[in-house]
Structures are given as structure tokens and as C-alpha cells.
Amino acid sequence: MPEPAFAAGTATSARPLMNRVGLAIAEATADDGRPAYSMSLPRIAESACDARLLTSSALGVWGLGGVEDEARLVITELMSNAVTHARRDYVRVSVMRRDLLVVRLAVADFSRDLPRLRAAGAEEERGRGLAIVEAVTAGRWGAEPRRWGKQVWADLEMSDE
């Protein structure tokens, strides 16, 4: 019997998604050989759910569950910015192990416009994402220009307690 097609929001959506995440896990390492998960996702708001799942999977494998809530919040904000400001139909989400206690979350897209922290007005409904990332990561975030666009990243450090 064939696998059910992936359909967001259905009871059968978890199995195909886990298969996609599993393939990304098996194949991915950072450029410097450190462990990493990576996945290309459609540039749509619903992809934040897949980015959170990828993030949680990576943290679980690495035993860094102590930063999972913060990581899920940060990757959601980075995805939201990419959905709003990027170009093209896909973005690349990465979760990289920087060292024993540090994980880097990143979203790469094809826009060369670098993000900037700004103060949102009290009545504005948008514009607080990077302020949240700034607060959660204690300022450990940035954007790296690429020939084809940029990668926005944020580092989270697990307490060694």
C-alpha cells in the first residue's frame, strides 16, 4: 500500500515529515564537519512547524532539550522574517552543533537585504521578531551575506548546570 501523501494538519502528516527529517539528519553535517540538520522548506508561514520539528529533533539527538523552548521560539521568528522578506519559493533551515553546549539556528534565503533590529511601535502588529531573538539569545545572532542572498543565524547556549 502506498504511503499517504503529506497533508499539513492531518493525522498522517507526521510519518512522511519524520521521513524527510530523517533523510536530512542522515546526510547533513556543517561545512566544518560538525553535526548539523538541514532542510529546504517552502517559504510559507506553515513551514515554521516543520522548522520547529527539525529543531526539536536535532536538540533531542544531541541531548540539548534544555534549550528546546527557546530554540523553537527563535527558529519561528527567523522563519517568519524569511517568509515576509525573502525572495524565491524556498528557504534553507539549519540546526548546527557549535560545541558541547551551543547550538546555532539559521535560515538562509535569496534576499540580500540584511535584517536589522528595530523598535516596533506600541500599535504595530509586526516588527518584534528580532527583538525577541535578541533577548532570547543575549545578543548572539547575526546575518552573513552570501553571493546569492544571506543566512540569518542565532546561537543558544545550554547552561552547564
Rank of each mutant, 00 (worst) to 15 (best):
A86W: 02
A86I: 09
A86T: 06
A86V: 07
A86R: 01
A86Y: 04
A86Q: 07
R87D: 12
R87N: 09
R87A: 09
R87T: 15
R88Q: 05
R88P: 01
R88I: 06
R88G: 00
R88Y: 00
R88D: 06
D89A: 09
D89I: 09
D89R: 11
D89F: 03
D89C: 04
D89N: 11
Y90A: 07
Y90N: 09
Y90E: 13
Y90T: 09
Y90K: 12
V91L: 15
V91A: 14
V91P: 04
R92K: 05
R92G: 11
R92H: 07
R92E: 13
V93S: 00
V93A: 01
V93P: 02
V93F: 00
V93G: 01
V93K: 00
S94L: 08
S94V: 03
S94H: 03
S94N: 06
S94D: 07
V95P: 01
V95R: 02
V95E: 04
V95M: 05
V95G: 02
V95N: 05
V95S: 04
M96I: 15
M96A: 12
M96Q: 12
M96P: 00
M96L: 11
R97Q: 08
R97W: 01
R97A: 04
R97H: 05
R98V: 11
R98Q: 12
R98M: 11
R98P: 01
R98L: 10
R98K: 10
R98D: 07
D99Y: 03
D99P: 12
D99F: 05
D99W: 05
L100N: 07
L100M: 11
L100I: 10
L100E: 08
L100G: 02
L101I: 06
L101K: 06
L101E: 12
L101Q: 11
L101H: 11
L101V: 11
V102A: 08
V102S: 09
V102W: 07
V102T: 14
V102Q: 07
V102R: 13
V102Y: 05
V103K: 04
V103A: 04
V103Q: 03
V103G: 04
R104M: 07
R104W: 06
R104E: 07
R104T: 10
R104K: 10
L105V: 14
L105H: 15
L105M: 14
L105C: 14
A106Q: 05
A106R: 03
A106K: 02
A106G: 02
A106Y: 13
V107Y: 09
V107I: 07
V107Q: 09
V107H: 11
V107L: 10
A108D: 01
A108P: 00
A108F: 03
A108Y: 02
A108Q: 07
D109M: 08
D109P: 03
F110I: 03
F110H: 08
F110W: 02
F110Q: 09
F110G: 03
S111Y: 01
S111L: 06
S111M: 07
S111C: 11
R112G: 14
R112H: 15
R112A: 13
R112W: 10
D113K: 15
D113F: 13
L114K: 15
L114I: 15
L114W: 10
L114D: 14
P115K: 04
P115T: 05
P115H: 03
P115W: 05
P115R: 08
P115D: 04
P115M: 02
R116H: 12
R116N: 08
R116W: 08
R116T: 15
R116F: 08
R116M: 14
